[in-house]
Nucleic acid binder design. Structure first.
Length: 1089
RNA sequence: GGGCCGAUAGCUCAAUUAGGUUGAGCGCCACUCUGAUAAGGUGGAGGCUCUCGGUUCAAAUCCGAGUCGGCCCA
């Protein structure tokens, strides 16, 4: 299959390449210059509408519904975002090349508290009162402006990274149609009876004066009070001891909890002559009494938690807080499963259902009133008695003092512990009980767990371990926030009530226009709070007003799968596309977007809204630390681009495993990728001058036309190309773009650059037209063209320029329109790949052996002996003897067949542990060492057994399967084993002995190489003729060189051999002999005559 | 405090599915090549495979307990 649409030359679209300077085989930069190249390609894309045309090109293809996880619009793109978008880009491009019509609408998450707090900072606001004074409408407008500003920064970053998405039409969570998508989803959940208003213990940010979700709470180490408080028992002697780090919750104390099965003690303790009876956990009593600095103590009672149940005590702040809870059964000891007699504290837990979540639940079970004397801003209400009006944290000291005054304080200190903070403004959160709106996803927990099964995750453990655990433990979703910049809850309640009975949930703008008392245009209405707060609904004589809350911002993005399609406003695509085929985000989204979408999809539609999830990791610093913008620990993608370019950065990012593992950024890794691209660039530009000179036309001379003339190495590189395509396709389908690009780069660097190009250079230098040259042209053209098509999703810029230069006006306007190259079975040839791999292994071993023998490649060696282990190696060598002679610079190649032995060798054995282990048990290691050390003349088992007889016990023998024989070479000769995939296939021996003839050629080559270097110093053209002067300070060497003088003259294009004046002159040391060389260019000399 | 993931050469990672003498690329050092040349080739140094136990003839690999890092949860 042709990758390029070669028949499209008549299209008016494709000829535009010429206009923009990409005609075939144009001159290209000598050096790979990413910055200049990428700017050129940006301009080119712009000029030919490359993106739009690529999208159009696939518009008839099968649908693929990708949904972009919307980045939050604060700050600019960091390395993590960059990795994420690069991953999306590579898969979207790959899918397009495979023919899919891909949905690629990017999204931005633009509501929520983070933006509100930024705007508040900007305006110098401290709390909600400032906002109210400024005006809701004004504040919402400021937030809108700020979010749009931030969006522009992200948009331009992503485009600058070369990401191709529909940048002209991103979905934005602040538009009426998107907000409507959220209303619709919420209304569907309400239809299923999954929406309720509830009195719950929630995390409250006292500065932002709103509830925040548990997953918005960030934990940091802080120093807090640590106090032990005695509750005096009623009806019996003594006190129970509790511990808390939040003295401000003591006023709301309602009961005390114990572990029914825990062990407790009564302790008679003495301090300053006074004696007290204290009850607390057995495991903690020593520690606690030490804290209380008691002089002495004695355990007088041993009890279980059960014994303590029902004990009544006095509220220690009863006088200061006259309104404290005083219902029947309060201020007694109860069992609760959140008590641990071996954890922090005393084994008795002060419980205030008006604050703590667990306390709240247990308090409800016990039927107690919920007493919470704290307002939404964290100050005590009048119910808190003498503490009224104080901010709770600031009241700690006074409360501690009051406890002490009452004699209730056993000990007071501080403790370092992690405490929850608001994710945006960093204020310490407080737990209070308020009214909130919930989506009761716990009612559909089984459905959620079922729906998890409908999505396929990469890696799969992320779904089956991490995500399932999270979903199993997930509580009801508190979706209401007492803020401004968000999607308003579409809930209207009867004017005189504030519960969740008889509510109206509005689903769409159209419904809104129909039902509200005011006259509105559904097309034009904005849905933000400042607008909809004014709307009332009157039905059946009852007037309904809107609940003033806005949604948790996580609800916004949870509807992205239909929000992307503008559904329900636009229902043209939903049925066909939904649910999403793929979403792709980092692992922190398990608790975020992966979860919120599953929750909303299930609550609203009973289904998972996505089918496949690719979960990648985070970008870490080179030393493994997490990146952090606020701490200025980061690598800025813009710096990476400045230093190495976009293609290099993308290649680096995309060469990392995307399946769950974090990625460490590495400047070395970036440099390596740049080196690889430079290699590609050099390979690409190497044949261009020759093709240009010969007017090579790939349309007229394709592979089919030169099939008869292809040489083995051509067929080999074509076979390798097929394997590379197959591997890449398999890896990409497996979401392992890192392995795919590794395969491609290895092909380009190892096979094309280091082997194929080396092997075909001389064919390209031939001046006359030859079938062999054309075959090489057609081959390298095909290989390069397919390689850049394969590289295009990763490095779209350099691929574009190379593709354009190769195809000119015969290709697609952009490489990104090309089809993903399919394996061409005709060229596949596993046998040949193996053959050449054998030859390369022999060559490599030969080079190694040569170095051991101390003979430079420039000096010929009389013979190279290849001892083959199998017939395959014999065949390969026999067919390619001249190639091997040439590459190893050997006068002769000698082949030793597998059944023969080369007489000059000794042998030793290499042990196979998988055989020795079972046979010798714990002596296997000992036998292995003896075998490895043995030296024998004859590679037979008998000789070997004799050599290792010391370690063999009676009756034991060495069998053939246990060992393989290894040769030991004599002095003149160096040998190196070669193998394939870890299996030994034979040995290459280099005989490095010297003769006059060899020395003659060796010295001649030394001279040639130095003359060539001097030609280069003078920047002479390859064809330019010279006059040469040689003076060699050693008679023997001089006569040796004389023997090869013709060779020297020919190689260095020396027409004259004479003394030259005013020449480029240099003295060289060659193997200890001084040689003086001078030369001048003949044309120059003639001109000066 | 709990869950998940990771820890192998200076760096980035393979090898863990099925236990069998730990590998590659990059970097470093030395040598080498030179009609792709700010490239290419060869070699060398560099590892108690995080620690400690266990299973086994044999553990990077399986099991248990820790340590450190990342993410998530409390």
């Amino acid at each position: 299959m042709q990758a390029g649409g070669l028949a499209r030359t008549d299209s008016p679209l494709v000829s535009e390449r010429i206009t923009f300077g990409m005609s075939r085989f144009d001159e290209v930069d000598d050096q790979y210059d990413p910055d200049a190249l990428e700017q050129r390609v940006f301009d080119y894309w712009d000029d030919v509408d490359a993106y739009e045309r690529t999208v159009e090109h696939r518009s008839d293809g099968e649908n693929f519904f990708f949904v972009d996880g919307p980045p939050y619009t604060s700050g600019s793109a960091h390395m993590g975002t960059t990795w994420n978008k690069s991953l999306k880009d590579v898969y979207l491009r790959f899918l397009r090349m495979q023919g899919y019509d891909v949905t690629d609408r990017p999204g931005y998450d633009m509501h929520g508290l983070p933006i509100e707090t930024r705007v508040e900072e900007r305006l110098g606001f401290e709390n909600k009162k400032d906002i109210e004074a400024f005006g809701e409408e004004n504040f919402i407008q400021e937030c809108k402006d700020y979010a749009n500003e931030q969006l522009e920064g992200l948009q331009s970053d992503f485009q600058d990274f070369g990401v191709w998405m529909d940048w002209d039409d991103p979905y934005r969570t602040v538009t009426p149609e998107y907000m409507e998508a959220a209303w619709w989803g919420f209304a569907k959940a309400a239809d299923r009876d999954l929406v309720e208003k509830g009195h719950r213990s929630i995390s409250q940010c006292p500065r932002c004066e709103t509830a925040i979700a548990n997953n918005e709470v960030e934990y940091e180490d802080v120093e807090d009070p640590s106090i032990y408080v005695k509750f005096d028992l009623e009806d019996r002697e003594g006190s129970i001891v509790v511990w808390t780090t939040t003295p401000w919750t003591i006023p709301a104390n309602t009961f005390t909890a114990v572990d029914e099965d825990g062990d407790y003690v009564g302790v008679r303790a003495e301090k300053d002559g006074d004696e007290e009876l204290l009850y607390l956990a057995e495991a903690k009593h020593e520690e606690v009494l030490k804290e209380g600095r008691y002089d002495d103590y004695e355990v007088v009672e041993e009890l279980t938690g059960e014994d303590l149940l029902g004990w009544a005590y006095e509220h220690p702040l009863a006088e200061a807080v006259p309104d404290h809870v005083d219902a029947a059964g309060t201020h007694e000891v109860y069992a609760a499963d959140y008590v641990d007699t071996h954890g922090d504290g005393t084994g008795l837990v002060h419980s205030a259902p008006g604050h703590g979540e667990e306390d709240f639940e247990r308090g409800q079970e016990l039927g107690f009133p919920i007493f919470c004397p704290v307002g939404s801003d964290g100050t005590y209400t009048d119910e808190a008695g003498k503490y009224e009006g104080q901010f709770v944290k600031e009241a700690d000291d006074e409360i501690i003092a009051d406890l002490e005054g009452n004699g209730a304080l056993l000990a007071s200190g501080t403790v370092q512990h992690s405490y929850g903070h608001c994710w945006r403004c960093d204020r310490g959160i407080i737990q209070i009980v308020t009214d909130q709106w919930f989506i009761t996803i716990t009612d559909v927990k089984d459905e959620l767990l079922d729906n998890i099964e409908d999505s396929e995750w990469h890696p799969d453990w992320a779904r089956d371990n991490r995500f399932r655990d999270f979903v199993e433990d997930a509580p009801d979703w508190n979706v209401s926030r007492q803020r401004y910049w968000g999607i308003p809850l579409p809930v209207w309640t009867p004017e005189n009530r504030d519960d969740d009975e008889d509510t109206i949930v509005v689903s769409t703008r159209e419904e809104l226009a129909e039902r509200v008392d005011q006259e509105i245009d559904p097309e034009a209405v904005d849905l933000h709070k400042d607008t909809v707060d004014d709307f009332t609904i009157t039905e059946d004589g009852t007037t309904y007003t809107r609940v003033p809350d806005v949604f948790d911002v996580w609800l916004d993005s949870s509807v992205a799968t239909w929000g992307t399609l503008n559904y329900p406003e636009d229902d043209s695509q939903f049925d066909e596309l939904w649910p999403a085929d793929l979403i792709l985000e980092a692992h922190d989204q398990t608790r975020g977007w992966f979860w919120s979408q599953l929750g909303m999809g299930t609550a609203a539609l009973g289904e998972s809204p996505y089918e496949q999830v690719l979960m990648h990791g985070h970008a870490l610093m080179p030393d493994g630390r997490a990146m952090s913008k606020s701490k200025d620990i980061l690598v800025d993608p813009h710096e990476a681009i400045d230093r190495h370019g976009r293609d290099v950065m993308r290649l680096f990012l995309l060469s990392n495993n995307p399946q769950g593992d974090d990625m460490r950024f590495s400047w070395d890794g970036m440099q390596t990728m740049e080196n690889h691209l430079r290699t590609l660039w050099n390979v690409f530009r190497f044949p261009l001058p020759y093709m240009r000179l010969d007017d090579f036309d790939p349309q007229k001379t394709g592979l089919a036309d030169v099939d008869e003339d292809l040489e083995l190495v051509d067929e080999w590189i074509l076979a390798r190309l097929q394997t590379t395509k197959a591997e890449m396709t398999e890896h990409l389908k497996d979401f392992r773009q890192d392995k795919a690009v590794d395969a491609l780069l290895e092909f380009v660097v190892e096979d094309v650059s280091r082997f194929y190009v080396q092997a075909v250079r001389e064919r390209m230098w031939e001046e006359d037209d030859s079938a062999s040259k054309l075959a090489a042209y057609a081959t390298i053209y095909h290989v390069l063209e397919q390689s850049v098509v394969l590289l295009a999703p990763y490095a779209p810029f350099v691929s574009e320029e190379i593709y354009g230069t190769l195809t000119g006006d015969a290709g697609h306007p952009t490489v990104h329109m090309a089809d993903w190259p399919a394996v061409e079975e005709y060229w596949a040839d596993d046998q040949l790949e193996t053959d050449v791999a054998v030859l390369r292994a022999i060559e490599e071993a030969g080079a190694n052996a040569r170095q051991q023998a101390g003979r430079k490649l420039r000096w010929p060696v009389p013979r190279v002996v290849v001892a083959a282990d199998d017939q395959r190696v014999v065949d390969a060598v026999a067919r390619h003897t001249p190639l091997l002679e040439d590459r190893l610079n050997a006068r002769e190649i000698e082949l030793v067949a597998p059944e023969d032995r080369w007489g000059e060798l000794n042998y030793s054995a290499e042990a196979d542990m998988s055989e020795l282990g079972p046979a010798f048990g714990d002596r296997a290691g000992q036998v292995m060492n003896a075998l490895n050390e043995a030296r024998i003349d004859d590679p037979s088992l008998e000789a070997l057994e004799a050599a290792v007889s010391d370690v063999l016990e009676d009756g034991e023998e060495i069998t053939e399967s246990m060992v393989s024989f290894v040769t030991q070479t004599p002095d003149d000769i160096a040998g190196t084993a070669f193998g394939l995939d870890g299996d030994d296939r034979g040995v290459t021996y280099v005989d490095a002995s010297l003769t006059d003839d060899i020395e003659s050629e060796g010295y001649a080559r030394e001279v040639i190489r130095r003359v060539q270097e001097m030609r280069k110093d003078l920047e002479l053209d390859v064809e330019e003729r010279i006059a040469l002067e040689l003076s060699i300070d050693d008679d023997r060497v001089a006569s040796l060189v004389d023997e090869r003088l013709e060779l020297v003259r020919e190689e260095v294009r020396a027409d004259d051999l004479r003394d030259v004046e005013d020449a480029h002159r240099k003295e060289w040391d060659v193997e200890g002999v001084t040689i003086e060389i001078a030369l001048e260019a003949l044309a120059a000399a003639e001109a000066s005559d």
